[in-house]
């Protein structure tokens, strides 16, 4: 029976939501082709996660554990995954569009002669029984339908937040696989610095508040953070704010920054350039605060207030707090 594999993504000891989103994508495909939905973990230690995976649709769980995978080395990860793919020949492999997956799946594609498409917003099986995905192309200005040729496996990553996890019940059959990994003399991790974040990571955030040139300086971003914290949102920025040195580059949303798709995106003092929209246009609800009634963002939003952000933002934070 053919299989669809979903890559497990873990942060410390918890399975990240993006894994369940991937399982949801796989369940959608299963409706068309009846394949078995399997989770696959590649890393140094899976821990006791099979119950969680079963709950979100995994019928089988492949575990590939090896101490050599404790540091992330794209080449070793690719070897591990490619070996088990060659052994079990899944039809389709789905992963979240995380930086780690982006960093090693192209090697897996090359090694297993597979097609790979990154950052899909939808998945389907077409009339030729091949995987077909939708993704943004030309900086968010178009949506392309991309068909896989009939060569297996077919590998795709899904955009974070694009699929809603489907909760059910089930407990997967666990299959442990061992792989031999040669020492890699050519690549060494010297230091890993995880910088603790005060707010949700933009690519995963359910809500985002971003400030632009209208903020006028770095200190003023405090009112963006206040609104963000009142609704548990991440904080972003336009390139104009980043280029002015007011906030770090990792906050930049847009074509050359992060691509985000939260349920709520609040753009404050941002005009709504094509390049900014390219990074947040797939947000579910867009709210704009701008003093210029002709700002392009007002043609691309669901809600907005035309007014001075220095009056509106504190008032809005207050009003939201009042709602409780």
């Amino acid at each position: 029976m053919s299989e669809i594999w979903v890559l497990v993504d873990k942060a410390q000891d918890v399975v990240r939501n993006v894994t369940y989103e991937g399982l949801a994508a796989a369940l959608k495909l299963k409706e068309k082709n009846g394949a078995t939905v399997c989770a696959i973990y590649v890393g140094d230690n899976a821990g006791a996660i099979e119950a969680d995976l079963g709950k979100y649709g995994a019928e089988k769980f492949y575990k590939v554990e090896n101490p050599a995978l404790s540091d992330f080395n794209p080449s070793l990860y690719a070897t591990a995954l490619s070996e088990v793919i060659k052994k079990h020949n899944p039809d389709i492999v789905i992963g979240g569009n995380t930086l780690k997956n982006q960093d090693y799946l192209p090697r897996v594609a090359s090694r297993t002669s597979a097609g790979l498409s990154l950052d899909s917003i939808d998945v389907d099986i077409n009339s030729s029984s091949a995987l077909e995905i939708k993704k943004y192309k030309y900086s968010g200005k178009s949506i392309a339908t991309i068909a896989f040729h009939d060569v297996k496996p077919m590998i795709a990553t899904v955009r974070l937040n694009a699929f809603k996890p489907i909760e059910g019940s089930g407990s997967p059959e666990v299959i442990a696989e061992s792989v031999e990994l040669p020492a890699d003399e050519n690549y060494k991790v010297v230091e890993t610095k995880i910088i603790p974040k005060e707010r949700p990571e933009l690519t995963e955030a359910d809500k985002i508040v971003s400030g632009g040139r209208g903020m006028a300086n770095g200190e003023n971003f405090q009112i963006v953070y206040d609104l963000a914290d009142s609704i548990g949102a991440g904080a972003g920025a336009s390139r104009a704010a980043v280029d002015s040195g007011w906030v770090p580059y990792e906050m930049q949303v847009g074509q050359t920054g992060k691509v985000v798709s939260p349920n709520l995106y609040v753009a404050v003092g941002i005009s709504g350039s094509v390049q900014h929209y390219a990074g947040m246009g797939s947000s579910k609800v867009i709210v704009a605060i701008n003093k210029d009634p002709d700002a392009p963002i007002f043609q691309k939003c669901d809600y907005g207030i035309c007014g001075d952000l220095f009056d509106i933002l504190p008032a809005l934070t207050d009003e939201i707090k009042k709602l409780g």
């Binding site: 992330f72 690549y187 991790v189 010297v190 230091e191 610095k193 910088i195």
Partner: peptide, 10 residues
């Protein structure tokens, strides 16, 4: 990298 940065020697 996600959540921070990493130094690698190649």
């Amino acid at each position: 990298i996600e959540g921070g940065e990493e130094v690698r020697e190649l």
